[in-house]
Structures are given as C-alpha cells and as structure tokens.
C-alpha cells in the first residue's frame, strides 16, 4: 500500500501572527514557516503504519510556493520516501483554496495510485477543515475525519474519531481519505541519520498545469483583523462586592 500525505507550509505555531497593514491577511514576509502541525501528525502516523509493515511507500506532497521544498525536505527527513512539490504560485500570501488543493491532490492520486491519504484535519493558518472532505468526494473514496486512533487491517481502516462529547469508532473501506486530530500521536523529530539520508531521497517538482488543474479563486478575503485586546480587570475589596458584580452582570 502507498500512503499519500499532503503537507502545508504555514506560519510556525510559535510565531505571533501579525496582520498586514492593509488588512488583506497575515504578514508572512521574513517569518518562520513550518509544516502544519496536523500534517506532521498525519505524516507520523503514515510512518508508524509503514513501520508496522502495513505500507511500502510514503509520498509527501506540498502545494504552494517554491519554498515549500523546505517543508518537503523536513517530511523526507522525518521518514517520507519521496516528495512531490506542486508550484502553484510565486506569492507566499496567495493561499491556495481547499477545492483547488483537493483537485490537485485528486490528480496526483490518480497518477501515483495510493490507497490511503492521511491529511491534517485543518491547516493552522486558515482553519478551513475542508480539503480532506472535498478530496474524498472528488475521488469517491471512504472518508474518516478527526482521527485520534488508527488501525489498518487488510482493506479496512478502523478510525476512532473525536466527535462532540465523545469518541466514535468507525470502519472505513480502503481506499480512504482520513483526516487526523491533535491527539493521534506525538510526531518524532528528524534524527540526524535521517536528515543525512533525506538528502538522497527524490523530490519531484511539477506545475498544476502538468496535472491538468487550473488554479481558480472562488473566495475573497474581505478583512483580516486582530482579536480585540482584553480589557483590564477589576480588583474588588471583598466577596460581597463580587456577588454584587455578578448579580449586576448576570442578573439575579
């Protein structure tokens, strides 16, 4: 079995996001970028499935600017076997929309023939949580989202899903698209020997046109703004005042 893992290059989760002066989005010039943490979890799971002998090859795909190569190098150093870079734009601020991403991934899937696609449930930049679902619809494959536990047995993948108020376990028939949640695993770091090995792993570069996919824009960002800053609190003298305040604000 081949596993396809799409990895997105996003603003590093440790970096404080700054809104661009014109409100058109987040300023991504000269800031640290990393692999989307959810995608890291998906990749880690793919590696574990391979280590258990349930997969032969892991292909990492990234769609975006030329610099996404770095994200793919990280994926190779973690344990992906080869990588495909789809250069879809030359502007780091141009976020490729989920439907386009799903179209590109569907085309790659037909070409490469994976039977499992492991995705992060969402990217931490736009929080769409849409690509996996769209992709499974495009491919007409089974879909399991928000996985917190995965078990592959023959042509069935058992997925424990984090749903509101509890856990749901489902069996999905392979081929399948699975989106992973935060608690599935703790991704490894690239070990030194693997960083060395990754240098020799293949990284193929293609354009959306090679796949017959057109980059279209269906969404328009109207405004991006920072959350309102928290207002200062009050220091009260005693419990009575506190009770009074609560009654004032909540109503008795």
């Amino acid at each position: 079995m081949k596993i396809l893992v799409p990895v997105k290059r996003v603003l590093d989760y440790n970096v404080k996001a700054r809104v661009k002066a014109d409100g058109s989005g987040i300023d991504l010039a000269n800031v640290k970028m990393s692999m989307n943490p959810f995608d890291e979890i998906a990749l880690e799971e793919a590696i574990r499935i391979k280590e258990k002998g349930n997969a032969e090859e892991i292909i990492a795909v990234s769609i975006g600017v030329q610099q996404n190569q770095e994200t793919l190098r990280t994926a190779l150093a973690m344990g992906a076997d080869r990588a495909i870079l789809v250069v879809a734009t030359d502007d780091v601020h141009n976020d490729i929309e989920p439907l386009t991403v799903a179209n590109i991934l569907a085309a790659i899937t037909l070409k490469e023939g994976p039977s499992l696609i492991l995705c992060g449930k969402q990217a931490i930049d736009n929080d769409f949580n849409a690509t996996a679902q769209m992709l499974s619809a495009k491919l007409k494959w089974s879909q399991a989202t928000f996985a917190s536990e995965i078990d592959v047995k023959d042509d069935i993948i058992r997925v424990t899903r984090e749903v509101d108020g509890g856990l749901q376990t489902i069996d999905a028939k392979i081929p399948a698209v699975v989106s992973v949640d935060l608690r599935l695993n703790e991704p490894r770091y690239a070990s030194l020997p693997n960083i060395m090995k990754a240098k020799r792993k293949p990284l193929e570069e293609i354009n959306p046109a090679d796949l017959g996919v057109e980059i279209t824009q269906r969404l328009k960002v109207i405004e991006t703004k920072e959350p309102d800053s928290r207002e200062a609190g009050l220091i009260l003298e005693n419990i009575d005042q506190l009770v009074e305040k609560i009654q004032e604000n909540v109503g008795g």
Binding site: A190, L192, I195, K199
Partner: peptide, 15 residues
C-alpha cells in the same frame, strides 16, 4: 539551507 533548518529544528525541539 533547508538541511541546516531541519537540523536546527531537531536540536531546538530536543532542547
């Protein structure tokens, strides 16, 4: 270089 970045990332996470 991306190799240096990956190495730095590994060391920083280890630390």
């Amino acid at each position: 270089s991306s190799d240096s970045k990956i190495l730095l990332d590994t060391v920083q996470k280890f630390m």
